[in-house]
Amino acid sequence: MATKKASSGGTFSKFIITLIVLIILGLGGTAVFYYLRYFGPQVTANQEYLYIHTGSTFDDVYKTIRDEKIVRDTATFSWAAHQMKYVGHVKPGRYKLTDGMSNRKFIRMLQLGEQDPVDLSFHVFRTKEQFAGFVSKKMEVDSLTLLRYLDSANYVQQFGLDTNNAFVMIMPDSYKLDWNLSADKFYHRMYNHYQNFWTDERKQQAAAINLTIPQVSILASIVDAEAVYDDEMPTIAGLYLNRLRKGMKLESDPTIIFAMHDFTIHRVLNKYLSVMSPYNTYVHTSLPPGPVMMPSVAAVKAVLNYQKNDYLYMVAKEDFSNRHNFAKTQAEHNINAAKFRKALTEHHIMK
């Protein structure tokens, strides 16, 4: 009888040990299960960024992640997103993806809205339409919305500008901006940068040449359109300021090209000079109502720090060096202009 009891006790002990082992294995398996779902590598290298548009729901985000194969297991991502209560807290933006990123880290980034800013760097653009098109390729906001704001008198008046000169507040530089920045916030960022540029010293320089801040940029746009080389900008600025002081028409070819909206023109013919436009400086005295291009910072500084000279006329050099011959008198200018016209004809540049 004693032997039987020992055998029964041994069997029970084995059962307990087996049960404990199974529990441990089960807990270990559960731990591994949760670890892989939360902390295991999930994000792939298929995409560099996840773009979440304004107004997107979790279903929209899930569809993008699934369609673009952003994670290895979409079911695991969805489960983790629900567990972390991300589903009702979607934030738009551009999110940088790292190969092997875990669900927990990925979803946490999305929850906090820790998006990767856009590096928006630009020099100059001929027209606001070109600029809006450029921005819309880099950011969520579309070009038509950007143009609509810039063309709204009620909107731009808050910046002390009008629809003709509002483009001057956009200054070439490098900006770090959230991808989903609204048009309104975008223009306020541009305006803040514009205001920071216009220090008290620069405002005083503008006042000293009897120009408003927007007028400085308008003249700078003409200087920029005329000059290929920055070192000529102060000379050209001084020339145009001389004409303004004397009440002479600026007679700037870039203003004709802008008025006609034909930037393929290389030779401004007499028939173009009568184009009906407030930008035609062969007809109207003083500056045009707005810039003929986005002026560079160098051009704005050139106007503020213009060269004091006696020049009243300029024409491109006949050697096509993209530099200019400057003149103090009409007679001297006529000689320079004839040389350039002759060179154009010899090179069969008729338009």
Rank of each mutant, 00 (worst) to 15 (best):
A237R: 00
Y311Q: 03
F159G: 10
S56H: 04
N242R: 00
G29Y: 03
V61H: 02
Y175G: 09
E346A: 15
L177A: 09
V118E: 02
Y175E: 08
T329L: 04
S78W: 01
T64I: 13
I222R: 00
D231V: 14
Q130Y: 05
I222M: 01
W179G: 02
V228R: 14
D262T: 13
T44Q: 08
E251H: 06
L241F: 01
T44K: 11
G290L: 11
M1V: 13
Q47L: 11
V216H: 00
W79F: 14
R267E: 04
M293V: 10
G10S: 11
V124P: 04
R104I: 03
Q307F: 02
D119Y: 07
F131Q: 03
F39V: 07
I335G: 01
V283P: 10
V87E: 06
H53C: 12
S152N: 14
H193F: 14
I265P: 02
P278G: 12
L250S: 09
V315A: 03
F131G: 04
V90A: 04
M233V: 12
G26R: 05
H266A: 15
N192L: 15
R126Q: 10
Y279K: 08
D99P: 05
K69Q: 15
V275M: 10
K317H: 05
N325V: 08
N305S: 14
I256E: 00
V61S: 00
S7M: 11
H261C: 08
A166V: 10
N164E: 11
N309Y: 05
N242G: 08
Y194Q: 01
F122P: 02
L120P: 05
T145C: 06
F131T: 00
S252E: 06
Y35V: 11
R243V: 01
T255I: 07
N305I: 07
H188T: 09
N322E: 13
A343W: 00
V300C: 11
A81Y: 01
M109S: 03
H82S: 14
H324I: 04
H89R: 06
I65C: 05
I20V: 10
L239M: 05
H324R: 09
L36G: 02
Q330K: 13
M294C: 03
M314Y: 02
V87Y: 04
Q111S: 12
L50W: 04
H82F: 14
V90S: 03
R148H: 12
G93R: 00
S277C: 14
K4F: 15
K176H: 07
Y62C: 07
L97E: 01
T212Q: 08
V141P: 00
Y194F: 11
L250I: 05
A337R: 04
P278N: 11
I52H: 03
A316R: 01
T64H: 07
A206G: 12
Y34K: 06
I20G: 08
D262Q: 12
Y240L: 02
N164A: 14
P254D: 01
A206T: 02
Y49A: 12
V297R: 15
W179I: 04
F122M: 04
T285S: 11
D230R: 12
G238Y: 00
M169P: 01
A2N: 12
M350D: 13
